[in-house]
């Protein structure tokens, strides 16, 4: 698996490019929904349109990007807390159970089942997405504090803390943002946007997810399988047999976005950068490359491309 830093995006570094645009539409195409769209929503007065392929990632976008109104009520919050108080466990004294590569306290799995039975879960897709986001926060917490020298919080306390976080998980930018899952080419071609942001995955595709992202998917669907979601040569993040096939697929896909003026492509793999530039040239676009050193062994790079 790639180093975690190879999944990370550092949108601050291209924020100067986005500062030119106000009250316009920005399309983000990525496989692993994450911090980029949230950063843009928080910091720019633009309408954010996201697309991802994973169910968990889509729920994340729904809760944090598209949702601008639907909040958990005090009754919901109380019920969720009551449930945690009932199923409370001490993190250091509970046994852990592994499901789909994610090892969590057995009590948390039980809590997840109970939470999914609450009426709030079925109220609206936004409520469900917010609950999934909440469960993911809890899962991340117990996943990350699996260390003997730092005992984790009991469930009821962790829930109390994270309920404060999900009371209002999103930050409104007063725009009508949208989250898509597996956006089709026609819809993409019809979106009037000024900026397209693409998180370019490796040619070999994603073979496995880092644990914290795997946990997000497992919280939504316990039987989640990466290969089911991303068959070969299907979408960003799929495995491609050769660089040529990869660029050909991307060229065809991006040709539906030619009406979008500025493309910002995050290309972490330096080896494919020349191929990307050539592919952009074939689409009659000129591009410039930017790199920022993040750590000794990691540089964050992106291309900005405009029509010739």
């Amino acid at each position: 698996m790639h180093d975690l830093a190879h999944y990370a995006t550092f949108p601050h570094f291209f924020s100067d490019t986005l500062r030119f645009y106000r009250h316009t539409n920005v399309v983000c195409l990525n496989t692993l929904a994450g911090n980029t769209e949230q950063f843009i929503k928080r910091n720019f007065r633009v309408r954010v349109i996201t697309n991802t392929v994973f169910p968990g990632a889509y729920e994340y976008d729904l809760a944090l990007i598209e949702n601008d109104r639907f909040l958990l009520s005090n009754v919901d919050l109380r019920r969720i807390q009551q449930l945690a108080d009932t199923l409370n466990f001490e993190a250091s004294q509970t046994k852990t159970v592994e499901r789909n590569g994610i090892k969590l306290p057995s009590g948390l799995w039980e809590y997840r089942e109970e939470i999914k039975r609450l009426p709030v879960f079925d109220r609206t897709p936004y409520h469900r997405a917010t609950m999934h986001y909440f469960l993911w926060q809890l899962a991340k917490y117990y996943l990350l504090t699996d260390r003997p020298d730092i005992p984790g919080l009991p469930l009821s306390e962790a829930v109390r803390f994270y309920l404060r976080e999900v009371k209002r998980p999103f930050r409104s930018n007063r725009e009508v943002n949208e989250a898509y899952r597996r956006i089709d080419r026609e819809t993409l071609g019809n979106i009037a946007a000024r900026v397209l942001i693409v998180d370019v995955p490796p040619v070999s595709g994603y073979r496995m997810l880092p644990p914290f992202l795997q946990a997000r998917e497992v919280m939504v669907n316990e039987r989640f399988k990466l290969s089911d979601i991303l068959p070969p040569e299907y979408f960003f993040g799929s495995r491609f047999d050769s660089e040529n096939a990869y660029f050909e697929w991307m060229r065809e896909f991006l040709s539906h976005c030619q009406h979008i003026q500025t493309w910002l492509l995050m290309v972490r793999d330096a080896a494919i950068r020349p191929g990307m530039v050539a592919m952009l040239e074939s689409l009659k676009r000129r591009s410039r490359s930017f790199s920022h050193s993040i750590a000794d062994d990691f540089t964050f790079s992106y291309l900005i491309s405009h029509p010739e």
Partner: peptide
Amino acid sequence: AQLILWHHEKWDGTGYPEGLTMDETPM
């Protein structure tokens, strides 16, 4: 300067400015 940029990132990804999670934030 870069460390200053990230000094409010949180381990669980709810920090700012970039919302980096775990080791995405340089040590």
